[in-house]
Design a protein around this nucleic acid. Structure first.
Lengths: 166, 166
DNA sequence: TACCACATTCACGTTCACGTCAATGTTGAC
DNA sequence: GTCAACATTGACGTGAACGTGAATGTGGTA
């Protein structure tokens, strides 16, 4: 599970509870920092959008900084780009699979399997990129429309001013 | 079912049309052309997102080409930009108010009221523009990330190829 | 005139993305 | 050890955006 984390929860010494020194945060903190609600955090975990964070002895969730970053990215995908949580999960899972496999990659013996994985990953990435670019062109068009409208409005305004003063 | 017309409203030949003589189309046609469902069309009308189209004697909805264009724009706002129908209604209402007032504009006697209207409209437009630009930067960042990923994948691929052949 | 595909209006059902209690347990300061 | 503050897990509720019948009416073609 927790492979290359710089912090281990299994420190040999008698652990003082609540290692805030380790950078772990409780749910309320994370909610405040991400702008999400506590319910939403649990929900995201429930639907497999966020990997289950570590817990205290008593079962309190302890979020790492990486978790928080993950959540920020999720929020951006949702708010800025209007992706559904299902879509985000697709992308995030792909991303995470990629991260996860990175180490295994070197140890992977079969180059055939490696190529296959490459193909799948690239195809997925291309699909995502296409989606993003579609949205981009749509947004750019909207942008030009809106700015054009602004200049028209400004023209009307100066015209009006002239009428008022002249 | 059998709709293969090249969608020309200027076609002046005596070709029989599936629409009413005046270019009006029934709901099924419009659904097909917009990619929305018939239910969705009625729903949009129901919540005031689409102005009620004209009807036949018997009560069948007859959509104009303008209605179709309106629907296409709605769909773009929803799919591409992830706006809620409420948000879209805001924008569309503003837009329509603008169009509607255009004629009244010239007849508008009070230049003070005109300025006021200008202010409101401009403020709204700026808000929309800001939203669009926020989304734009987010998407652009995503785009660079994805393309970078693609190049990395490609590098890995060639490396693998070398290993396989060499 | 008869037919049938397509239309209409209720009205209830569904999925997503959470909100909101309620009952209970945990933490940490005192 | 006590206690308030924060946490947990259900479980049900909610609003948005439609889906899905059911019962009924329309309209162009044969």
């Amino acid at each position: 599970m927790s492979s290359h984390q710089p912090v281990s929860i299994d420190d040999q010494t008698t652990e003082p509870r609540t290692d805030d020194g380790a950078g772990y945060q409780r749910i309320e903190q994370v909610a405040a920092r991400t702008g999400l609600t506590k319910r939403t955090l649990r929900y995201y975990e429930e639907i497999g959008l966020l990997p289950p964070p570590t817990r205290t002895e008593g079962g309190y969730r302890l979020y790492s900084e990486a978790d928080v970053q993950h959540l920020v990215r999720i929020k951006r995908l949702k708010d800025l780009l209007g992706f559904s949580l299902a879509e985000i999960r697709e992308m995030a899972n792909a991303e995470e699979e990629r991260e996860h496999v990175r180490e295994a990659w070197r140890r992977e013996t079969d180059p055939h399997a490696q190529l296959e994985w490459l193909d799948r990953t690239e195809a997925l990435t291309r699909r995502q990129l296409r989606l993003v670019e579609e949205k981009l062109t749509g947004l750019q068009e909207m942008q030009t429309n809106l700015t054009a409208r602004l200049t028209r409005l400004d023209a009307l305004r100066t015209e009006l001013r002239k009428k008022l003063e002249g």
